Simulated assay, not measured.
Amino acid sequence: MLRGEKIVFTGKLDTLSRKQAQALVTALGGKPQAAVTKDTTILVVGKANTNLFQEDPRSLKMQKVEALQQEGHAVCVLSEQAFLEKALLHLNQVVGIMSGSRR
Score class of each variant (00 low, 15 high):
Glu55Ala: 14
Leu28Pro: 06
Ala48Ile: 10
Leu24Met: 15
Pro32Tyr: 09
Val95Ala: 14
Leu68Met: 02
Leu13Val: 12
Gly96Cys: 04
Arg18Leu: 14
Val95Arg: 11
Glu5Asp: 11
Ser99Leu: 13
Met1Asn: 09
Lys47Asp: 12
Leu89Glu: 12
Asn92Asp: 15
Met1Glu: 13
Val44Ala: 07
Ala35Tyr: 08
Asn51Ser: 12
Leu43Pro: 07
Ser17Asn: 08
Asp56Ile: 02
Val36Leu: 03
Leu2Ile: 15
His90Cys: 15
Leu52Val: 09
Leu88Met: 01
Gln70Phe: 02
Ala48Asn: 08
Gln22Pro: 01
Thr40Phe: 05
Leu52Tyr: 09
Lys12Trp: 00
Val8Glu: 03
Leu78Cys: 08
Met62Asp: 01
Arg3Cys: 09
Met1Trp: 07
Glu55His: 02
Leu2Phe: 12
Val65Asp: 00
Ile42Tyr: 06
Ala27Leu: 14
Lys47Glu: 13
Asn51Thr: 10
Thr41Gln: 07
Asp39Gln: 13
Thr15Met: 10
Leu88Glu: 05
Leu24Thr: 03
Val25Leu: 02
Glu71Tyr: 00
Thr26Met: 11
Lys86Ser: 09
Lys61Thr: 06
Ile42Cys: 07
Ile7Ser: 03
Leu2Met: 14
Thr41Ala: 09
Phe83Val: 05
Lys31Asn: 06
Ala48Gly: 01
Val95Gly: 01
Lys19Tyr: 06
Leu91Lys: 08
Thr37Ala: 03
Asn49Pro: 00
Met98Thr: 14
Ala48Arg: 15
Gln33Gly: 08
Ile7Asp: 04
Arg103Trp: 07
Val25His: 00
Ser101Cys: 13
Ala23Trp: 06
Arg58Lys: 15
Gly46Ile: 04
Phe9Gln: 07
Arg103Met: 10
Val95His: 09
Ala87Ser: 15
Gln20Thr: 02
Lys64Gly: 01
Lys19Ile: 11
Ile42Gln: 03
Ser79Asn: 08
Ser79Val: 10
Gln81Cys: 01
Arg58Leu: 08
Ala82Phe: 03
Ala87Pro: 10
Leu43Val: 11
Phe83His: 04
Val65Ile: 00
Leu13Lys: 11
Val95Phe: 10
Leu13Tyr: 13
Gly4His: 10
Arg18Pro: 03
Asn49Cys: 04
Leu78Ser: 10
Leu89Gly: 14
Thr50Glu: 09
Met62His: 07
Phe83Asn: 06
Arg58Gln: 09
Leu84Glu: 01
Met62Asn: 00
Leu24Trp: 04
Asn92Thr: 12
Gly4Arg: 12
Leu13His: 11
Lys19Val: 15
Arg18Cys: 07
Thr26His: 13
Leu2Pro: 08
Val25Met: 02
Leu24Cys: 05
Gly100Glu: 15
Asn49Lys: 14
Ala87Ile: 09
Glu55Lys: 15
